Amino acid sequence: MAISLSKGQKIDLTKTNPGLTKVTVGLGWDTNKYDGGKDFDLDSSCFLLDAAGKCPSEGEFIFYNQPKHSSGAVEHTGDNRTGEGAGDDEQVAVDLQAVPSNVEKIAFVITIHDGEARNQNFGQVSNSFVRILDQQSNKELIRYDLGEDFSIETAVVVGELYRHGGEWKFAAVGSGYQGGLAALVKDYGLDV
């Protein structure tokens, strides 16, 4: 049975799951009824961050147009442009043992593609979640349902995998941003 987290909670991942080396981070969402005449496309991406909380280079920004980190440790498995159907809408595979030693944290985000230009925001999104699965058994270990706390935001940092004392932990973040992906990219130290 998966452990369900609330916003702000942190949990040991590798310590409580001995032998865990590869995980899948599943992200999902539904869009509410929307009649704005434009497609509603949400995207997941992740940022591999150093001790200062910044991306050392553009190579540490993983998304549908740059799906794999040079180390092979993190791979975005594909873009879902509709969010249709049950289960994960997008996934990121992470080999915890292969993550470069300078990476202290991996932040997972969901953004609305062209959200501001299309007048779309997370107030129009429901059932958002992030979950961590053991890649080997496909067993769900951790789940964080984001709830309906957002209204005007166009990007959300949903959670973070991070190193602590030689182990990997997960934090349920649930922090919304205005300015979409561009704001996050800038906050994580990259040029837009």
Rank of each mutant, 00 (worst) to 15 (best):
Leu27Met: 14
Gly189Ile: 04
Ala171His: 07
Gly174Trp: 08
Tyr162Ile: 06
Glu160Leu: 00
Glu153Val: 10
Ile110Trp: 05
Asp12Thr: 13
Gly37Pro: 00
Lys169Trp: 12
Gly147Asp: 10
Asn65Lys: 07
Thr111Ser: 15
Glu160Trp: 02
Asp12Gly: 04
Lys105Glu: 13
Asn138Ala: 13
Ala182Arg: 14
Thr21Lys: 15
Phe122Met: 04
Phe129Gln: 12
Gly36Thr: 03
Asp145Lys: 12
Asn119Ile: 09
Asn32Cys: 13
Gln120Thr: 09
Leu181Glu: 08
Ser44Ile: 14
Ala171Pro: 01
Cys55Val: 02
Gln120Lys: 14
Val185Ser: 00
Gln135His: 02
Asp35Ala: 12
Val158Ile: 14
His113Thr: 10
Asn32Lys: 15
Gly180Tyr: 11
Gly28Arg: 08
Pro100Lys: 00
Gly87Arg: 07
Gly19Pro: 09
Gly176Phe: 06
Met1Ala: 13
Asp88Met: 07
Val94Ile: 14
Leu96Tyr: 09
Lys105Phe: 01
Gly37Ser: 02
Asp12Met: 10
Leu133Cys: 06
Val92Glu: 05
His69Ile: 04
Asp149Arg: 12
Asn102Tyr: 14
Gly36Cys: 07
Leu27Ser: 13
Ala52Ser: 13
Thr16Leu: 14
Thr21Tyr: 15
Asp149Asn: 14
Thr77Met: 12
Asp79Cys: 10
Asp88Lys: 12
Gly59Tyr: 07
Phe129Val: 11
Glu90Phe: 02
Ser70His: 04
Ser128Gly: 07
Ile3His: 09
Gly36Leu: 06
Phe61Asn: 02
Gly8Lys: 04
Gly72Thr: 03
Glu104Cys: 00
Val25Lys: 09
Gly8Phe: 05
Asp79Asn: 14
Gly159Met: 07
His164Lys: 11
His113Leu: 06
Ile3Tyr: 11
Leu49Pro: 02
Gln178Leu: 06
Gly37Glu: 02
Ala86Met: 09
Gly147Leu: 12
Asn121Gln: 12
